[in-house]
Computed example of a mutant assay.
Amino acid sequence: MPFPLLFKRPGYSPRDFLWWGVTLALASAGGALFAGVGMPAGWLSGALVVTAIAALFGAPVGVESNVRVVTYVLLGTSMGSAITPETLDGIATWPVTMAVLLISVPVMMVAVIVYLEKVAGWDRRSAFFGAAPGALSTVLIMAESSGADTRRVVFSQSLRLFVLVALLPAALGGLGHQPAGTLPINPVVPDWTSFFLSIGVGVLGAFLAEKARFPGGTMVGAMLASGVVHGAGLIEGRLPDLLLIGSFVVLGANSGSRFAGTKADTLRRFFLDSLGALTIAIIVALAFSALGAWLSGEPLAKVLVAYVPGALEAMTIMAFVLGLDPAFVAAHHLARFVGLALLIPVIARLFFGPPVAPVAPKDDTPPLDETEPKD
């Protein structure tokens, strides 16, 4: 998501503004409902669920691109505030959990590929790219140029993100983790000076990271810059609750709107296949996270969020709102992202040969909207 979009003035129609307003209204209502009944990460998961339902019923829901950029900067800035000198002391355990993660990725991919190809009946190319637990932009480009059915790949990735954001908080409760509630528990900035300094540091970090083409740069750059100043004790406190609530609502609305344009026939054809693949991936992630937690002494919930096949930004934010270490989670998802982005093109070339023109679908299923979250 290019950070310089903030400085552009794209032309929009009144209908665009209307549906963006409707989307945020629906997402706010869903978030308020989930938060009101005390669900962990309620503002985020409630906004996602309600927006996704609206999208599946045909509503042209969506979030304006500049609003998404601002949201990622705000969330990254506030997540960096959770980094303290004590947090940095825990880096000593990261090599152990990183090593276990490195082993888990090929195991997860092979297990999902076998299921999609042998059980669900997908062709091998589509199964390979549908099994990739990250690096979505690279995966979609390679899938199309390798002749895979990108509709299947897109749908499986969208469903994965939806299920993880909507259900992971409750699942962690079943594993014994007690989430902080609907908002993080670390203190809010004590004064306006700290507030504006935090925002300025986050914006600068996001801008520099995007210029350097850093994966997830808008959010991760803001988080790293904010983390440096908070870890050094130069600034204390996260952003106010109202900004966080709004950011969670926008993020949930953006994720839920990914299902806009999905036809009923597409949903029937791909839903069970994708859900089965996700179940297998989560089982593998749970097994390896248990091993990583045992070897490193880290809490199981924290390692699991770092290992599940979710998007970099979404899982880091999930860790933040659930009271887990966002720096730990971001580092592991970033490592997997970089590894997959580097290796998938090489592996695809070895197994499938040089790029080819995309194949035409073998059925009459309408195509999916291929606008996807960054991963």
Rank of each mutant, 00 (worst) to 15 (best):
K302P: 00
A287Y: 00
E298P: 04
T365M: 08
P358F: 11
R268Q: 08
P355Y: 01
I282D: 08
T279H: 00
T266W: 13
H332P: 08
G256P: 03
A253W: 03
S257L: 13
F337N: 12
G276S: 05
G310N: 10
S289Q: 07
V321E: 01
A327K: 07
V329S: 01
E313H: 06
P299K: 05
A360E: 15
D265A: 14
L267E: 06
M318N: 07
H333P: 12
G256S: 00
K263C: 15
D364R: 15
I280M: 08
V308M: 14
T365E: 10
R258E: 00
A306F: 11
T279K: 00
S289A: 13
T316G: 12
L300V: 07
I282E: 07
G353W: 01
S274E: 06
A287M: 03
D369W: 04
V250N: 08
A290P: 14
I283K: 00
F288R: 05
T371F: 13
A277W: 05
S296E: 08
V356R: 12
L295W: 09
A314T: 15
L334Y: 03
D364S: 15
D265N: 13
Y307R: 10
T371H: 14
L324S: 01
A319Q: 11
L312I: 12
A348P: 08
F270W: 14
F328I: 09
L267T: 10
S296K: 04
L324Y: 03
I280H: 06
L286N: 01
V305E: 08
S296L: 11
Y307P: 07
N254L: 13
A357P: 00
F320H: 04
D265L: 12
D369T: 09
L340S: 09
K302S: 15
W294R: 12
A285E: 05
V284A: 03
V249H: 11
I282Q: 04
D325Y: 07
L291Y: 04
L334T: 07
S289K: 03
S296F: 07
L368W: 01
L286W: 07
P366Q: 09
I344V: 15
F271K: 06
A341Y: 06
F259P: 08
A331P: 01
A330T: 00
M315S: 12
V338E: 09
F337S: 08
V250D: 04
A335T: 14
R268Y: 12
S274T: 06
